[in-house]
Every structure is written in structure tokens, then in C-alpha cells.
Amino acid sequence: MTASLLVPALVNGLTTGAIYALVALGLTLIYGVLHIINFAHGSLLMVALYGVYFLNTGLGIDPYLALPIAVPAFFILGYFLQRGVIEHTAHGRDQNILLVTLGLSIILDNLALYFWRSDTRTIDVPYGFDVIDIGVALIPVPRAVAFGAALGIAALLWFLIGRTDLGRAIRAVARERQGARLMGIDVEHIYGLCFGIGTATLAAAACLLLPSFYVTPQVGHAFVLVAFTTVVLGGMGSFTGALVGGLILGLVESAGGLILGESLGQIGIFIIFILVLLFRPTGLFGGKPA
């Protein structure tokens, strides 16, 4: 195999992987702190993609410029989903939360189908087909932006969780709720914030994806399966794991596409999913169970 084939595949894999990582970061944050698997994650990504799509087609707002609108809007949406819906319907039972998020995802998917049909929609941006020449390969501009911005957002999240007072409180709640309450930390508020941040990452992913991607009512499923694999591969609740896992899966998909052909690229991801569950169920970076 020649470098002229391999390098673009590598670049392609890393840029896709950065988006996977971003989607997985949101999922792993919610799992790590609230200990719930958010089945609505993919559907919320789909809603975010439609939001960014309509901001562009309706109001002419560029997807990148939509970031400061979509991200806070989805943060607020996530916060109130947790505080207003999940908190009240779940009564603290994990199986109830599963059902609530699953139900939410079914509702969102079907509303999307009803209103927007299953048409595949894309947008036109002036830089859509621009490329950056790095010598060994040409990188499409939207992919380069997505890669850089996704890593930037991941770094920002890492700083928030690892280095700030709020992040410390989040990590405290994740492992020791009762102790956190006794220090005056409002646990329910922290849950809302984490669900909000997790949802906001989806809005960011949507803004970065849309210039080079499409939206359909089912688009979330593909991503959420990969995101679950990423989270399992990296270790449930692990931040580094989600980041490294996302990049690895991006590469695996790209390599799979090169060897087996475009349409079978994702097979490698599910082989990895099964292998990890068989041989290292705690994932690459997973610690002891919380």
C-alpha cells in the first residue's frame, strides 16, 4: 500500500475520530457523574444537527458562527432535561432513568421523522471544498477545523473538570454523593450541570460536523453506537479514555474502509467493541468500578 493512500486515510481517521471523541466525552461525563447511560445522546445530536441546519438554511448563519448560539442553548436544554424531566420521573432508580432516556430518544426520533421526513439534508458553505495541502495529503478545510476545534473543546473540558472548583465538586459528586452533600455541594444542581455540559458537547459536535456531513432523523444512531464503543474501549467514565478511544476508532474505521471498502469500514469498530468486552471489560483507561 502506498503512502499516497495511507496518509489521507490516516488524516481522515483522525479527524473523524476527534468528532467521535467529542460525542463520547459528553456520554462519558454523564455516565461518570450521574451513573446513567443516556440513550437519548444520539437523538439529541440529531436534534442539534437539525438546529444548526435550520440556522444555516433559514437565517444564513454559518455553522461555525452558530457555535456560540447552539452550545449555550443545548447546555440549558440538557440542564432542564435533567432537573425538570429525568430527576422527577426517575425517582432515583437506574432502570427508570434508562427507560426515560430511551423514551425521550424514541419521541425525538419520531418527531423528527414526522416533521422533516427521512430526507438526507446537507448545507452549502463557501469553504466546503477548500483543502489544505500538507505535502503528503490534502486535508479538507471542514475536517481540519473539526479536528482542531474538537481537540480544543476536549482540552477545555479537561481543564474545567481537572483544574477548577466546579470540576472538583463534579469529581467529588461522582464518587461520594453523601460526602459531597455534607460539604454543602448541591448534588442535583451538579447533575444538571453535567447533563447540560454533556448535551452541549453534542451541539458543538453538530456545528463542526455539518459543513462536511449530512443530517437525517436516524443520523444519531451511527454516532451513538460508536460513542458507546468509544466509552467501553476507553473505560466507562474515563476522560482520557474517551479521547484516545475516539481517535483509535476513527483510525480503525478509516483503515477498515481502506482494506474492506468504504461501506464495511465500521465493521472494525464493532469487532473492537466485542473484543474489549471479552478481554478487557474495564476498558483501556478504566479503573475500579465506582
Binding site: 472538583r168 465538586a169 469529581r171 464518587r175 461520594e176 460526602g179 455534607l182 460539604m183 455541594i185
Partner: peptide, 16 residues
């Protein structure tokens, strides 16, 4: 005790 197990001693104190 209910200390925060994966936070450092310093971080536990700061959260106080």
C-alpha cells in the same frame, strides 16, 4: 469518613 477517594488530600480540603 466519606472522603472523596480519587481526589487528593489537598483537593478534599479545598472542597471543605
Amino acid at each position: 469518613r466519606r472522603v472523596f477517594p480519587d481526589l487528593s488530600v489537598r483537593e478534599n480540603l479545598l472542597l471543605g
